[in-house]
């Protein structure tokens, strides 16, 4: 059952780590340009849902469809290629390569997808400017503040002109002011370029930047607006 017009959708996903079930019949769908918050208490399975949707983890059961293609039918290499070209990622921390400068970090997904270095870095600079951190371009991640680092990460997720950005607690390590700014910049950039954002968070104020929210509880999703 794929909702009409959805870009990425999942139906009754099951996934267990050893004996512990992480997902127990979760479903999800997102349209192009839509920002959907995945909420729920810690340990509810929201990160696992994100990992499954992004093709990082394969679910034990259930289907995931991206742009008409079944994700579980793809090989690891195909899914990697998909992540390189179609998806972008922002995590809570520890995601920037410490030895690369910020601009090189942002250019990395482009270069992994095969872009020339000069070209990739020019695009990277453009995104750093948009995220208001062009002044740290030549610095290494260890030399910038948490807020700046997170904006660099957002710039990196956007630089490869993805169709979907997966953001796992993108503001988790930031204070409210920095967090709000990062969310604002992320959602604005996503909306203006018609990028869908899957936003995993347990903070309502972060979720408020979404168009819609899905709650995960005990590995099951409840899409309230659709249910009501």
């Amino acid at each position: 059952m794929i909702p009409v017009g959805s870009l990425l959708s999942a139906d009754s996903l099951h996934k267990a780590y050893g004996q512990t079930p992480a997902l127990d019949g979760a479903s999800f769908s997102i349209h192009p340009g839509e920002v959907v918050a995945v909420m729920g208490p810690s340990g509810s399975g929201k990160s696992t849902l994100l990992h499954c949707l992004a093709g990082i983890v394969t679910p034990d059961r259930g289907t995931i469809t991206y742009a008409g293609r079944e994700l579980s039918a793809m090989s690891d290499a195909e899914r990697s290629a998909l992540r390189r070209t179609e998806f972008g990622f922002v995590f809570q921390f520890g995601q920037l390569v410490p030895e690369l400068t910020c601009v090189e970090n942002v250019a990395l997904p482009l270069r992994l997808a095969g872009a020339k270095r000069k070209e990739a870095e020019r695009t990277a600079r453009h995104w750093l400017e948009r995220l208001e951190v062009d002044d740290v371009a030549a610095k290494r991640p260890g030399e910038v503040s948490g807020g700046q680092g997170q904006r660099v990460a957002v710039a990196r997720s956007l630089a490869g002109s993805p169709k979907v950005i997966f953001a796992d607690e993108p503001t988790g390590a930031l204070d409210s002011l920095n967090g709000e700014r990062v969310m604002q910049l992320l959602t604005e950039a996503a909306r203006s370029t018609n990028v869908a954002v899957v936003l995993v968070t347990h903070e309502a104020r972060v979720a408020a930047y979404s168009d819609r929210d899905v709650t995960v509880r005990d590995g099951r999703t409840r899409d309230l607006e659709h249910a009501v």
Binding site: R205, A208, E225
Partner: peptide, 13 residues
């Protein structure tokens, strides 16, 4: 109630 709260939060955001 939760949905209603979030709806208002979205508007305010």
């Amino acid at each position: 109630q939760r949905t209603e709260h979030l709806r208002l939060m979205r508007i305010l955001t």
